[in-house]
């Protein structure tokens, strides 16, 4: 096993891939709010708010997809195994 080299080798985080999504949401909010706000007053709070909204939306979409696949879809399209 060769030594890990940052930026060349991937990190060993396949099991905690979801932990990479909140930082991504924060970075998206950092750039988008810097571009979109009329003034940068209250910028930090706006970034936190948008990042929170993105994470919440992802959680809700995930929960919705889970409910649909596990409970709704089998009722609509019953599969016999």
């Amino acid at each position: 096993m060769l030594a890990y080299t940052p930026f060349l080798d991937p990190i060993d985080a396949n099991g905690i891939w979801w932990a990479m999504l909140p930082p991504l949401a924060i970075l998206i909010a950092v750039v988008y709010k810097a571009l979109r706000l009329a003034t940068l007053r209250g910028y930090g709070w706006q970034v936190l708010l948008m990042a929170g909204q993105i994470v919440l939306a992802m959680l809700l979409l995930g929960a919705g997809a889970y409910l649909f696949i596990q409970h709704v879809a089998p009722m609509v399209l019953p599969v016999r195994l």
Partner: peptide, 11 residues
């Protein structure tokens, strides 16, 4: 270098 696979590649 090691080529990434799976979730880390996607992320």
């Amino acid at each position: 270098y090691v080529r990434s696979q799976g979730k880390v590649q996607e992320i």
